[in-house]
Computed example of a mutant assay.
Amino acid sequence: MSSITFAGNLAEEVELRYAQNGRAMARFRVLENRRTRNADGEWVDAEPNAWRVQVWGDMAENVAASCHKGDRVHITATSRPTSGQIKRPGRPADRRRSTRAKFLSASASTR
């Protein structure tokens, strides 16, 4: 399992659900803005990276209560393949399970 760290803004409201055993799970997407140089050497906006993230347990409830669409977050996550990726090797992994989430937006700490 690989780890990845990235920062970005929440693209949507956090979706909080509970498993049959009562354990909380939150899902959300983070957009990470990128800048590149064009042919003239000027910096321009590039297509953002979009990350789908899951968090579990107390962290899921904290993220759902504290973070809202547009808030800046810093995520450290592990990457693991979905069952579809195991059955179809070569399909890019796009789901991350967060092991740590930090709220960077001032608004996140005041809600």
Rank of each mutant, 00 (worst) to 15 (best):
R96F: 15
T5C: 11
G90K: 09
R100L: 12
K87L: 14
V14R: 03
A108C: 07
P92A: 13
V63I: 10
C67R: 01
E15K: 13
S3K: 12
T78N: 13
S79T: 14
W43N: 03
A19L: 15
E13M: 01
R88P: 00
P81G: 08
G90Q: 10
E47S: 10
R27C: 05
R111A: 11
D40K: 13
L16H: 02
A108N: 04
R52S: 14
A11C: 05
I75Q: 07
G8L: 01
P92T: 10
R37F: 11
V14D: 00
D45M: 06
T36A: 07
I86C: 00
T99H: 01
G22Y: 08
E32N: 06
P92R: 11
P81A: 12
Q20P: 08
R72Y: 12
V53L: 05
S105W: 05
N38P: 00
A106C: 02
P48H: 08
S79K: 05
A26F: 02
A50I: 10
R29V: 04
S79L: 15
T78W: 04
N49M: 12
P48N: 09
A19W: 11
I86D: 00
E12F: 00
A19T: 15
R27V: 03
R91H: 01
F6Q: 05
A11Y: 00
V55Y: 05
S66Q: 12
T99I: 14
D58M: 02
A64W: 01
A106D: 06
S109I: 09
I86E: 03
R96C: 12
F6E: 06
A65S: 11
T82K: 14
M25E: 10
Y18S: 08
S83E: 14
E61F: 02
W56A: 08
V73H: 08
N33W: 00
A26V: 06
A24G: 09
R34Q: 15
K87R: 15
V63C: 03
D45G: 02
K69M: 13
G84E: 14
R52L: 13
Q85E: 15
A108D: 03
T76P: 02
S79Q: 13
P48I: 09
V55M: 07
F28P: 00
K69T: 14
K102Q: 15
V73C: 10
M1D: 04
S98K: 05
V44G: 02
G84W: 12
D40Q: 15
R95C: 06
P92V: 11
V44N: 02
A19K: 12
P48K: 08
R35S: 09
V44H: 01
T5R: 12
E42L: 08
G57P: 06
W43G: 02
R97F: 12
R72D: 10
T5F: 02
E47H: 03
T36L: 09
L31T: 12
S3L: 13
N38I: 02
T5N: 11
R23C: 01
N9Q: 10
S66K: 12
R29F: 05
I75L: 07
G90E: 11
R17K: 14
R96Y: 15
F28G: 01
H74Q: 10
G70F: 04
R96P: 00
T99P: 00
